[in-house]
């Protein structure tokens, strides 16, 4: 059986947090704040552990004969350089921030550029991936709502009837999105309930 102690802690903490959201009594609210503080600290420690894990993955990649990756060397050097500077001068130091952002921002901007090209290629390849009428509908609705949302049809000469039609058309994407989000919300509710009832235990070995 999976760890009963971890399960009991998860169920107990989950129930207290849920009840404090629904019934904001001062006692429950203070306990919730305490739990949330602990969760934030634990998440920060988890982040640190995961970053060390990332370091060890790249360290192993340099030495691995099967999956050797020399780009990992750049990661290791960059990591050590940034970590030492950050520890010595502090992460908010005025000399460090521009040094890091002048590398990070151009790299991320180039990735966004690459992403734009990827989207164009994907739009062209859409019918090869999904040979169905849904692909056509997807593409047509994307174009229609892009044009309608941009407001190019709204001028001073636009007749009131067309304005009404455009207003109705503008409501449709929001309505569709709400439909999808309602489904997601119901699924999230049930997923949370399964954790609260101990049916799913991703935290316990």
């Amino acid at each position: 059986m999976r760890s009963p102690v971890a399960t009991a802690i998860a169920i107990g903490v989950g129930l207290i947090v849920l009840l404090s959201y629904l019934f904001p009594l001062p006692v429950l609210a203070s306990i919730r704040m305490l739990f949330l503080d602990w969760a934030i600290i634990l998440a920060a420690v988890a982040g640190l552990v995961a970053i060390l894990n990332l370091f060890s993955v790249h360290w192993r990649k340099i030495g691995s004969p099967r999956e050797r990756d020399y780009y990992s060397l750049f990661f290791i050097l960059g990591f050590i350089f940034t970590a030492i500077l950050g520890l010595l001068l502090g992460p908010t130091d005025e000399r460090i921030r521009p040094l890091i952002t002048s590398v990070q921002l151009p790299v991320e901007a180039s990735l966004v550029g690459l992403l734009t090209i990827t989207f164009v290629v994907s739009a062209v390849r859409l019918f090869a991936l999904h040979r169905s009428w849904i692909s056509g509908l997807f593409l047509a609705s994307t174009i229609v709502f892009l044009l309608v949302g941009s407001g190019i049809f709204l001028t001073n000469d636009t007749s009131p009837v067309i304005k009404e039609v455009l207003t109705i058309l503008n409501i449709l994407p929001g309505a569709g999105a709400r439909g999808i989000l309602l489904g997601i919300a119901l699924g999230s509710l049930l997923t949370g309930l399964r954790i609260l009832l101990g049916m799913d235990r991703p935290y316990s070995e």
Binding site: A43, A46, L48, A50, N53, P202, S204, E205
Partner: peptide, 12 residues
């Protein structure tokens, strides 16, 4: 892309 999720994936 998040630390706690990484640890949970290892645990899982």
């Amino acid at each position: 892309g998040e630390g706690s999720l990484t640890l949970l994936s290892q645990s899982t």
